[in-house]
């Protein structure tokens, strides 16, 4: 009986480990998807920064579009780091401080919203730094260092 129980427990533990590994494997598309999402955001930043630097003339339509993509993308961030999707370049702290993490995503959304509302170059340049600060403010505690 004890032997059988022990065997049963061992099997269950084994199954749990394998099962978790399989789930992690099955969930890796979620990691890939959110990495694509982050790259999309990076692409918007590459549209915005040359205007901020003055390397390219300010283009209101392009700026508003890029900011709009950031708003939509920021809304997806909390859900993209759901339970059981640990991994990639994300630090485990995301899942132990999820409320703080989500509030940082909201900070990006709000900052990008204000950027999208900018109707001239001066307003754009005034609103932009908060977007960069939101990106960096979240990467500091929650993104693995680049290697």
């Amino acid at each position: 009986m004890t032997k059988g129980l022990r065997f049963g427990l061992a099997t269950a533990a084994f199954a749990a480990v394998v099962g978790t590994a399989l789930i992690a494997e099955a969930q890796s598309p979620q990691i890939a998807a959110r990495q694509d999402g982050m790259k999309q955001q990076g692409a918007q930043m590459r549209v915005l920064t040359p205007m901020m630097r003055g390397e390219q003339p300010y283009n209101m339509a392009a700026a508003k579009q890029a900011a709009g993509v950031l708003v939509a993308s920021a809304k997806n961030i909390p859900g993209a780091f759901g339970p059981g999707t640990e991994g990639g370049n994300a630090l485990p702290a995301i899942w132990t401080s999820k409320a703080d993490f989500d509030s940082k995503a909201k900070a990006l959304e709000d900052a990008a919203m204000r950027l999208a509302a900018a109707n001239d170059e001066a307003a754009f340049k005034a609103a932009f730094p908060a977007v960069g600060a939101a990106c960096g403010g979240c990467h500091q505690p929650y993104r693995k260092p680049q290697s």
Partner: peptide, 28 residues
């Protein structure tokens, strides 16, 4: 020069990514 400025001022790398970890703290 703009790439350097963006990195030093806000932590953005030329591909639009933002540094994480210690360097993010250095930027801040």
């Amino acid at each position: 020069p703009g790439d350097f400025i963006d990195l030093l001022k806000m932590g953005m790398t030329p591909d639009g990514d933002f540094v994480g970890g210690e360097m993010a703290e250095v930027v801040k």
